[in-house]
Amino acid sequence: MKVMNKALPIMKDIIKDMFLNQTPFEMIETFRFADLGCASGPNTLLFVSEIIDTVYKLSNQINNKIPEILVVLNDLHKNDFNNIFIVLPSFYEQLKEKYGYEFSQKCLFSGVPASFYERIFPRKSLHFVHSSYSIHWISQVPENLDNKGHIYMEKTCHPNVFNVYKKQFYKDFSSFLTHRSHEILPKGRMVLTLIGRNMLDHDPSENDIWCIYELLAQSLLDAVSQGLIKQSEVDSFNLPVYHPYKDEVMTIIEEENSFYLEKLQDFDCEWDPDDKLYKKGSGEYLTNCIRSISEPMLVSHFGELDLDYVFERYKEHAANNLKSNKTNYINLIICLCKK
């Protein structure tokens, strides 16, 4: 929630600037925006509702006719879009109660199942693009990756592991920017939020984001020691994720050259926030987060693995880690304007 609270004011300011300083409302009959990597959880429509609210208030502020709003939700084919579409009737009811029937009928939804590392929208069809916690997921595990005993980058990995992950992210993020440059109108905007890291080089700090994935590697090796899975299965499993340093992001944006970088803000979040539902330092909050992220990949790779055992071990490792290390990780908010 802290990440959302940081990103929402920035996103609203970007939209206000679009309409008040660059793209007058009277020139827009339909405001079209896309949420990339939307997932299917409760926060999906929260961002959408905030954007709709911003457009509604702006149009009333300048006494202009409210444009139609087209919301395009995107994620991979395996995402269960039905979980989103099922709640749309109640979402429309909320719009009707808050803004009236006429405006609620101007808000239209569609879904596009595809990888955002490819072209997915018509040329010059979007005014605004949003993505939260998706861009750090790369298109694939890097090829020719020899990373036995680990599932991601870690202090004891061979330096080449870092290099091949970095190369894959560079390729993917460049491709992402190029494809969006075709789909977004001139002066259109993007706001991207992703998890980054503290250091530029390949020597992870003790409290950086990759440490939480190494705890999962340790838990999988515990399952090996119990005969639940084979060592070779762990050796062949790696996560398709890369958390960039802010300077890497700025370099890629500059070299790809389709967008102006308007803002890049980094801030800390806690792995183990003071949540009333969880005992601080217990590892339970972090365990639930990592399980929700990794379970589909673990099931796909390991099949009938006893995940309850794996994540009980993870919770123990996490609790021990939280006692001995700082618990912050870096978030990046990137604001871009199409040239």
Rank of each mutant, 00 (worst) to 15 (best):
A217Q: 02
D268P: 03
L261S: 06
E102M: 11
K263H: 11
A7L: 13
T193F: 11
G37D: 01
F128C: 07
L220Q: 12
Y309P: 08
N198Y: 12
K98V: 07
H182K: 14
L45G: 00
A34P: 06
C211L: 13
T178A: 14
T193N: 03
Q226Y: 13
N144C: 07
G303S: 11
D172R: 06
E97N: 14
K323L: 12
P186N: 15
K263F: 05
R291W: 04
H301Y: 04
N60L: 15
Q265S: 15
L322T: 03
Y133T: 09
E262H: 12
M1S: 14
D308L: 09
Q218D: 13
K263V: 02
L76V: 06
N82A: 00
E68K: 08
Y99M: 06
V249K: 03
N74V: 01
N328Q: 07
Y329G: 04
G111E: 05
N60P: 03
E143Y: 07
W137N: 02
P24D: 03
T327W: 02
P204M: 11
I120S: 11
K16P: 00
E262N: 15
W137E: 01
L307Q: 11
E295K: 08
P9N: 11
I333V: 15
Y242E: 11
V310R: 07
L261A: 03
R189V: 04
Q226N: 14
G283S: 06
K187P: 01
F85Y: 04
I10Y: 09
Y152V: 05
V224Q: 06
N207T: 07
S225C: 09
F33H: 04
E26W: 09
K338M: 14
S258L: 13
L216W: 10
A223D: 02
D272M: 05
N331C: 14
K323G: 01
I120L: 12
V161A: 05
K167S: 13
L332T: 02
F31N: 03
A7D: 06
Y152S: 14
D75L: 04
T193M: 13
E26S: 13
